[in-house]
Amino acid sequence: MFFIRIVRHLWFHLALVFLLSIICTALSWASPDARAFLKESEQRHRTRTQQYAGELTVVNKDGKVRKKGWKSFREGYAGDARNLIRFVDPPEVKGVGFLSLAKPGGQNPDQWLYLPSMKRERRIAAQDRDSSFVGTDFSYEDMEEFDHEKYKVALQGEQTFESFPCYVIEAVPLEKKGKSVYGKLILYLRKDNLYLLREDLYRKGEKEPGKRMILSDLQQIGGHWVARKMEMTDLKKGSKTTVLLKEIVFDKPQPVSRFTLQNLNREGGE
């Protein structure tokens, strides 16, 4: 009898735990947390390093096409990312370098541009970050890795984009330690793999998005999802910059000096 009482007691507790976990799961699905999705997304897609060769096509509103090429190197991810971009084409921008070093605590990253004609680097002020990045539709702020911790986020709902069910998340810059060009971002996160497919960028005080970034041609490379095509459209100017990512390599150890001003100033260097 005593044994039966213990078994019943155990069953009762197990059933209670099971019931509670069902309730918790149901509750979490009933009110999904945008922050949790973004955290999960970062966790899934975080890589130690990434490098690729980018082929850029800039098309202005009149349809005039200009091509550029760069090599991009990244170490870290989101809030701890360090980026180096070196233009390889066309001749007028060849050798131009861009270095971005994330800073802790939600501060804007330190950014520098190296111009071969001047043989020295130039610092970029936070307020310059709305300027066009070397004649593309990306601004200096757009060149930063998205770090959800710098935003107040809220789930707005679900939508299908390019036939993929997506979570739609609103992200408003907290601006605790650094100003943003944008008043808010609307992110479209693919439900099945939590990969960012679309980003609508609203400048401050504007009700319509000023820019739209679309990531497509998702492939798995080295066990990581990556969009091989990035399109940034300036909806006001009517121009579009497309970046095709080639020679993508993940988690390759980067030289110690890659993300330094010393290296940025190396003429002909990477």
Partner: peptide
Amino acid sequence: LRIPLNTTHDLQLGRFQLGWG
């Protein structure tokens, strides 16, 4: 020629332009 002496030090020699200030 620019010869890296190690990961943090470079030696450059020849004819090149400087940009200071």
